[in-house]
Design a protein around this nucleic acid. Structure first.
Lengths: 148, 148
DNA sequence: ATTTTGTTTTGAGTAATTCAAAACAAGTAC
DNA sequence: GTACTTGTTTTGAATTACTCAAAACAAAAT
């Protein structure tokens, strides 16, 4: 039976996917385990105070390991750096603000996941559907001059 | 009545959106006007033989002008350079091959465009939905060792 | 023909990310 | 507990895709 990798201590989650438990991995996983979406630089700046010897390159390496083991999801919205989130395994989607670039989650558009079926696939076998909605967030709607 | 910017000569299409007609613009628009998806470098290499003085920066500038005038669409699949296509105004989507990175069009997933409605929008007002399917293309399915 | 406005060239710069080799630490076996 | 093996992190550099700015230039308007 598959383990739920979204609960438990950071250490237990690392062990559950067979990754060695190291201080940088614990710190990065913690930094990414609150709701929201963060880029590598932000993760680095969250990790640095506690673990000043951890390099940005190590953060990239840890994030890549977490993504490929399924503990973390990586999204790459057009026009911004890659973002990482700890909400995994539920095939949710994202809204991006055209004005300020902020990102929020949206639940699967139609029914259960996989929720989308293309009408023709050009011979591709489809694994996942990734949806990005583009719009304007509430703060930017109320401010004619969006907050920068 | 809105003009169909996908037909006519390159010159007519440029004029229809109020852009000055220049040699680099004609060449870039031609290079992008066959079916498919091309990155800026590829466009540059298509334009160079006929117009050797056209710089890569000019190609970026022309593509940006064509995109913002609606003559060309820009897509930015995760993990690869931005791609440009001349099929505009029909809200179609894309499939990307996880193995070789190739991109193909897929028609709108469900019914007419806009075909997707998120169940909750977190206060965003939604303008467009962008769907990317990830899968494996036919050539990569038949080759166990994918062509590199 | 002249002027105005917008475009392209030239040259440089930047952000995000990746690569490679050496130093190091976690986990495993003894 | 110590030594070994394997995987991880550090350090330092490189690369890719793209953007910026100023000067030269060309299209379109007058």
């Amino acid at each position: 039976m598959a383990q739920d990798t979204t609960v438990g201590t950071a250490e237990a989650r690392l062990r559950s996917v067979g990754l060695k438990v190291t201080a940088p991995r614990l710190a990065v996983l913690d930094a990414v385990s609150t709701p929201g979406h963060r880029d590598a630089d932000t993760v680095f700046s969250l990790v640095s105070p506690q673990l000043p010897k951890t390099s940005l390159q190590a953060v990239y390496g840890v994030l890549a390991a977490l993504v490929s083991s399924g503990l973390v999801r990586k999204i790459e919205p057009a026009g911004s750096a890659a973002l990482y989130e700890s909400r995994v395994g539920d095939n949710h989607h994202h809204v991006a603000c055209l004005s300020c670039g902020s990102i929020a989650d949206v639940d699967c558009a139609i029914g259960a996941s996989p929720c989308l079926t293309p009408s023709n696939t050009n011979g591709f076998s489809i694994h996942v559907a990734e949806v990005t909605f583009w719009g304007v967030c509430a703060p930017c709607q109320s401010a004619d001059t969006p907050a920068v």
